[in-house]
Amino acid sequence: DEVRLHVNGHTIEFRGIDEEIFKILEEAAKRGADEEELRRLAEKLLR
C-alpha cells in the first residue's frame, strides 16, 4: 500500500499509511513542512 504526496515539486512516497494519516501529512505539506518533517510526522503517527 503506497501513497504519493507532492510537495514543492517533489514526490514523496509513503508505504503502509491509511487515508487519515495521509490527510494529516497533506495538510502539513500545505503549511510548508519539508520532506524530513513529513517523514518524522508519519513515523509518530504510525506508532
Rank of each mutant, 00 (worst) to 15 (best):
residue 39 R to P: 00
residue 12 I to W: 00
residue 34 D to I: 08
residue 42 A to N: 03
residue 41 L to A: 02
residue 27 E to H: 11
residue 4 R to G: 05
residue 3 V to I: 13
residue 34 D to R: 07
residue 33 A to H: 07
residue 15 R to P: 15
residue 8 N to F: 00
residue 45 L to W: 04
residue 15 R to S: 15
residue 17 I to V: 08
residue 13 E to Y: 03
residue 7 V to R: 01
residue 6 H to W: 00
residue 44 K to V: 12
residue 28 A to M: 12
residue 13 E to W: 00
residue 5 L to S: 02
residue 43 E to V: 06
residue 24 I to R: 11
residue 23 K to N: 08
residue 33 A to F: 11
residue 35 E to V: 14
residue 47 R to Q: 14
residue 7 V to K: 01
residue 20 E to N: 10
residue 33 A to Y: 10
residue 30 K to I: 12
residue 9 G to I: 03
residue 4 R to T: 10
residue 3 V to D: 04
residue 13 E to K: 04
residue 8 N to G: 07
residue 2 E to C: 14
residue 1 D to T: 12
residue 41 L to G: 00
residue 14 F to S: 06
residue 11 T to F: 14
residue 44 K to I: 13
residue 15 R to Y: 15
residue 16 G to L: 01
residue 21 I to S: 14
residue 44 K to Q: 13
residue 36 E to N: 12
residue 18 D to V: 05
residue 7 V to N: 02
residue 21 I to E: 08
residue 31 R to C: 12
residue 41 L to C: 06
residue 30 K to H: 11
residue 30 K to W: 09
residue 40 R to K: 13
residue 26 E to T: 13
residue 8 N to M: 01
residue 11 T to A: 04
residue 6 H to R: 09
residue 18 D to H: 04
residue 28 A to L: 08
residue 15 R to V: 15
residue 19 E to G: 08
residue 8 N to C: 05
residue 2 E to R: 09
residue 28 A to Q: 10
residue 37 E to P: 01
residue 22 F to H: 05
residue 42 A to V: 12
residue 20 E to A: 11
residue 45 L to G: 05
residue 38 L to M: 04
residue 14 F to P: 05
residue 40 R to H: 10
residue 35 E to N: 05
residue 30 K to P: 00
residue 3 V to N: 11
residue 34 D to E: 14
residue 32 G to L: 04
residue 31 R to I: 09
residue 34 D to G: 11
residue 22 F to G: 05
residue 22 F to L: 10
residue 28 A to N: 07
residue 1 D to R: 15
residue 32 G to I: 03
residue 47 R to P: 11
residue 23 K to H: 09
residue 29 A to S: 07
residue 4 R to K: 11
residue 10 H to P: 01
residue 37 E to A: 10
residue 18 D to L: 03
residue 17 I to F: 04
residue 19 E to N: 11
residue 17 I to A: 05
residue 9 G to V: 02
residue 44 K to N: 12
residue 20 E to I: 11
residue 29 A to L: 12
residue 27 E to R: 10
residue 17 I to H: 02
residue 31 R to F: 10
residue 19 E to F: 07
residue 46 L to W: 03
residue 44 K to H: 14
residue 30 K to N: 08
residue 34 D to M: 12
residue 45 L to N: 04
residue 30 K to C: 09
residue 38 L to E: 00
residue 7 V to F: 02
residue 8 N to L: 01
residue 42 A to F: 05
residue 43 E to F: 02
residue 33 A to C: 08
residue 23 K to P: 05
residue 42 A to E: 03
residue 11 T to G: 02
residue 18 D to R: 01
residue 37 E to M: 13
residue 29 A to R: 02
residue 45 L to M: 10
residue 22 F to R: 04
residue 24 I to V: 12
residue 12 I to S: 01
residue 35 E to W: 07
residue 1 D to P: 12
residue 19 E to P: 07
residue 14 F to V: 13
residue 43 E to G: 07
residue 32 G to E: 01
residue 15 R to W: 15
residue 25 L to M: 03
residue 35 E to M: 09
residue 39 R to Y: 13
residue 15 R to M: 15
residue 11 T to R: 01
residue 26 E to H: 08
residue 11 T to C: 06
residue 27 E to M: 12
residue 24 I to E: 09
residue 21 I to G: 15
residue 31 R to M: 12
residue 20 E to Y: 12
residue 2 E to A: 09
residue 47 R to D: 14
residue 5 L to M: 06
residue 16 G to E: 11
residue 46 L to H: 05
residue 44 K to Y: 13
residue 1 D to G: 14
residue 12 I to R: 00
residue 38 L to T: 01
residue 45 L to Q: 06
residue 26 E to S: 09
residue 10 H to F: 03
residue 29 A to Q: 05
residue 21 I to F: 06
residue 3 V to H: 15
residue 45 L to Y: 06
residue 22 F to A: 08
residue 35 E to K: 03
residue 29 A to F: 07
residue 8 N to W: 00
residue 37 E to F: 14
residue 35 E to G: 06
residue 43 E to Y: 03
residue 1 D to N: 13
residue 10 H to R: 09
residue 16 G to D: 15
residue 13 E to A: 03
residue 34 D to K: 10
residue 47 R to L: 13
residue 22 F to V: 10
residue 31 R to L: 13
residue 3 V to Y: 15
residue 14 F to T: 06
residue 41 L to R: 01
residue 21 I to V: 09
residue 33 A to D: 06
residue 13 E to H: 04
residue 6 H to L: 05
residue 18 D to S: 13
residue 26 E to I: 14
residue 27 E to Y: 06
residue 4 R to N: 06
residue 19 E to Y: 07
residue 44 K to P: 01
residue 40 R to P: 00
residue 43 E to K: 08
residue 33 A to W: 10
residue 26 E to L: 14
residue 19 E to Q: 09
residue 46 L to S: 13
residue 45 L to H: 08
residue 27 E to V: 09
residue 10 H to V: 15
residue 38 L to N: 00
residue 16 G to S: 03
residue 42 A to G: 05
residue 12 I to V: 08
residue 14 F to D: 05
residue 28 A to W: 11
residue 22 F to K: 06
residue 33 A to N: 06
residue 11 T to N: 07
residue 11 T to Y: 15
residue 18 D to E: 07
residue 23 K to M: 09
residue 27 E to Q: 12
residue 37 E to T: 13
residue 31 R to S: 10
residue 14 F to I: 15
residue 6 H to P: 04
residue 43 E to C: 06
residue 33 A to S: 09
residue 22 F to N: 02
residue 5 L to D: 02
residue 34 D to N: 12
residue 19 E to W: 06
residue 40 R to V: 10
residue 18 D to N: 12
residue 40 R to E: 13
residue 13 E to P: 00
residue 45 L to D: 03
residue 16 G to T: 03
residue 14 F to E: 05
residue 17 I to N: 03
residue 33 A to R: 05
residue 28 A to P: 00
residue 43 E to M: 04
residue 25 L to W: 02
residue 43 E to R: 05
residue 28 A to G: 03
residue 9 G to Y: 00
residue 17 I to T: 06
residue 9 G to K: 01
residue 36 E to Y: 12
residue 10 H to D: 07
residue 47 R to M: 13
residue 35 E to P: 07
residue 21 I to N: 14
residue 9 G to H: 02
residue 39 R to I: 14
residue 26 E to D: 08
residue 28 A to D: 01
residue 12 I to H: 01
residue 7 V to I: 09
residue 33 A to L: 13
residue 17 I to L: 08
residue 18 D to Q: 04
residue 16 G to I: 01
residue 37 E to N: 09
residue 19 E to V: 07
residue 34 D to H: 10
residue 25 L to F: 02
residue 7 V to Q: 02
residue 44 K to E: 14
residue 35 E to A: 09
residue 16 G to V: 02
residue 31 R to D: 12
residue 5 L to F: 02
residue 13 E to I: 15
residue 14 F to H: 04
residue 15 R to N: 15
residue 37 E to I: 08
residue 32 G to N: 04
residue 1 D to Q: 14
residue 31 R to G: 13
residue 1 D to K: 14
residue 47 R to T: 14
residue 16 G to P: 07
residue 8 N to R: 03
residue 11 T to E: 15
residue 2 E to H: 11
residue 46 L to R: 08
residue 37 E to H: 14
residue 20 E to R: 09
residue 22 F to E: 03
residue 5 L to V: 07
residue 38 L to I: 14
residue 13 E to L: 04
residue 36 E to F: 12
residue 37 E to G: 10
residue 18 D to F: 04
residue 31 R to P: 01
residue 18 D to G: 12
residue 27 E to T: 10
residue 32 G to T: 03
residue 23 K to C: 04
residue 35 E to R: 02
residue 4 R to F: 10
residue 6 H to M: 04
residue 36 E to Q: 13
